[in-house]
Nucleic acid binder design. Structure first.
Length: 486
DNA sequence: ATGTGC
């Protein structure tokens, strides 16, 4: 076979299950790309179907083949995981794996990834999948993993430590229900939000007293690790101006249809990523950190700091957004701030034992109200957990609509279906404004690339996990003014 | 989600 032919393959790292699609030309090229994409020293490659090892070249590999990569271990073909159904306990033998989804479609691949977590991580006691469960790199997004309290797995929290959602009541008003002239003007005023702030402002903000909505720890780290504070980032992060479309509970005294609300979704930017890398790089993907070791103490302290940093990041993003619109930032009040990606020590209600609850894309149901965002141009929901002590759902809820397809698939499909990207700046469904000058993101984050938020909410209501307080309508979704990656 | 390499 000609050595310059390009072949597209799917590689899966064993035992972690992390996978990636690569375009490769030679075996050396393949090993190199595996190392960089999977973040391990890739040493051996096998054909997934037969277990045969690739020793000299890619002559046995053709387009779209599945390959297994290991760091040195031999790979032997095993039976695939048994088929499963959602809304039931999948494997009660050792680890209970439960997926809460009825109306929402959860891909088999995501469920297989969840079962893989149960199989390969020691000391796991319970796993829950939320209705927005979808495929991740190795661990699916939209799940909660409870382990023995003696161990923490950084990989089960991921790189965006502290990522979450702030819901802020502003003093902005819209006099007419659809004052589009005002919204167009505000959209134009949203400038400079992607710029990094001066060191002095960042340092001062990290050391300020902040109630958001409760006291947030001060953060004391070197500015070289802080420069992104106050910026939204990319991917599914955004700031959205909303109004209340339906208020189902008039007893909520801090909610008023007269004012507009800000929803901020962002995390710890590259800070969290550096922390994950520090604890996983070259040490295997599954490494647990054991209580009593220095690594555990250092990771937990950095994790907590990243969580505080992410909260302050959301606060500063909201401030900057309101400043663009000429608002006094002191007039805003944060009603909800939750983490989607973090680990907490939790007392289980069933047997008084403790677990480390790792949330990877899941909202807490044990700290009060949460906002569950839809996809771009769809409603978000302010909800209240019915029982703050609900072990059967892992003390958690869905954190959003959940992707229905990969980013690459979405880009390919929607750039073909909607070639005029400018038209995506006003959403088809609710006529909301979208600020996103990154064309790739416009397609990757297209609403049709996500599951239906109403199905996710229905699943949680039917499972008696939440009651809906308010339905929020998007007015302006701000993603980025940066144009790179086009 | 992110920084980095091709």
């Amino acid at each position: 076979m000609a050595s310059n032919a390009k072949i597209r393959v799917t590689v899966t790292l064993q035992p972690s299950g992390k996978s990636s699609v690569l375009i490769v030309q030679t075996l050396d090229d393949l090993l190199r790309q595996c190392s960089s994409k999977l973040r391990v020293k890739a040493r051996r490659i096998f054909l997934a179907s037969t277990g045969e090892e690739l020793l000299t070249d890619l002559s046995k590999v053709s387009n779209d083949m599945k390959l297994i990569v290991t760091c040195g271990d031999t790979y032997t073909v095993t039976n695939p995981p048994s088929t499963t159904q959602t809304n039931s306990i999948i494997d009660s033998s050792k680890v209970s794996v439960q997926v809460i989804a009825n109306r929402t479609l959860v891909e088999q691949e995501a469920i297989d990834q969840l079962k893989n977590v149960a199989r390969i991580y020691p000391h796991v006691k319970h796993i829950w999948g939320m209705p927005d469960l979808h495929v991740g790199q190795a661990t699916p997004i939209g799940c909660v993993v409870a382990t023995e309290p003696s161990v923490v797995y950084p990989e089960l929290i991921g790189s965006d430590i502290g990522c979450g959602m702030s819901f802020v009541r502003t003093s902005l008003r819209l006099v007419y229900e659809d004052d589009d002239r005002k919204l167009s003007k505000w959209t134009k005023q949203l400038q400079g939000l992607d710029d990094y702030l001066p060191k002095e402002r960042i340092d001062e903000f990290l050391q300020s007293d902040l109630q958001w909505p409760t006291t947030v720890n001060k953060v004391n780290i070197d500015h070289s690790e802080n420069e992104q504070l106050g910026t939204i980032g990319a991917g599914n992060h955004f700031v959205e101006l909303q109004r209340i479309e339906e208020l189902y509970d008039d007893k909520e005294e801090d909610l008023s249809k007269d004012y507009l609300y800000l929803l901020v979704h962002s995390g710890s930017r590259s800070l969290g990523e550096r922390i994950l890398r520090e604890f996983c790089k070259g040490k295997g993907e599954l490494r647990g950190l054991e209580k009593g070791t220095d690594d555990y103490d250092i990771y937990m302290s950095k994790h907590d700091e990243a969580c505080a940093w992410a909260k302050r990041n959301r606060a500063l993003i909201a401030q900057r957004f309101l400043t663009c619109l000429g608002q006094m930032t002191t007039s805003a009040q944060c009603l909800v701030d939750i983490w989607h990606n973090n680990v907490v020590l939790k007392d289980l209600s069933s047997d008084n034992s403790q677990v480390h609850l790792h949330r990877k894309g899941a909202a807490p149901s044990d700290t009060g109200r949460v906002v569950i965002p839809g996809s771009r141009g769809t409603h978000s929901y302010l909800v209240e957990p019915i029982d703050q002590n609900q072990e059967s759902s892992g003390y958690s809820l869905a954190h959003g609509a959940g992707r229905a397809m990969s980013r690459s698939k979405a880009h390919q499909r929607f750039s073909g279906k909607y070639p005029d990207s400018d038209r995506l700046r006003i959403t088809e469904t609710l006529d909301s404004h979208v600020v996103c000058d990154d064309k790739q993101l416009l397609y990757e984050e297209h609403p049709e690339a996500y599951k239906t938020i109403d199905a996710v909410i229905d699943d949680l209501v039917e499972a008696k996990l939440i009651r809906v307080i308010a339905k929020m309508r998007p007015l302006i979704t701000y993603k980025t003014r940066l144009t790179h990656k086009e």
